[in-house]
């Protein structure tokens, strides 16, 4: 089955962990993840500037490693990210901000990517919505 996965909650939330475990299980079960789309507070789950205490789970890092390892199509909504201070280098320069926190394997892009995923997947699975 072709899954699209949307995450709406930050890295420290149970939803971010659940989404990652689901994604791992989906691939392990022979399914395909055609796109990840991080929206709303989910943009924080893609942040590369999260610092977790050493004895705590670093879900943002686990997500990044998972995405890189499986070369997934991983999109962070640009409008949601800008609003929450999660910028890549290009946007940080454009808006003259001192820090960039979104980098590869994540890409900043628009809601069109979500709609495209909804059209092309068999199932859209959402985590951390209301």
């Amino acid at each position: 089955m072709k899954f699209a996965i949307a995450l709406h909650a930050p890295a420290h939330s149970p939803a971010a962990r659940r989404a990652l475990r689901f994604a791992e299980a989906a691939l392990a079960g022979g399914h395909e993840i055609m796109r990840l789309f991080f929206y709303q507070d989910g943009v924080h789950s893609a942040s590369s500037t999260v610092v977790s205490p050493q004895d705590e789970l670093d879900t943002a890092r686990q997500w990044r490693e998972f995405v890189a390892q499986h070369q997934l199509d991983a999109v962070v909504c640009i409008a949601a990210a800008l609003r929450r201070g999660e910028l890549n280098t290009e946007e940080a320069q454009r808006y003259q901000r001192s820090a960039a926190s979104i980098d590869a394997p994540w890409a900043l892009s628009g809601l069109g990517q979500l709609h495209e995923a909804i059209q092309q997947c068999d199932r859209l699975i959402c985590f951390g919505g209301h």
Binding site: Y39, Q40, A79, A80, G110, L111, G112, L114
Partner: peptide
């Protein structure tokens, strides 16, 4: 921003 962000999906 939840309400606005839901509307953004609908409008897109």
């Amino acid at each position: 921003p939840g309400a606005r962000e839901a509307l953004d999906i609908a409008l897109a």
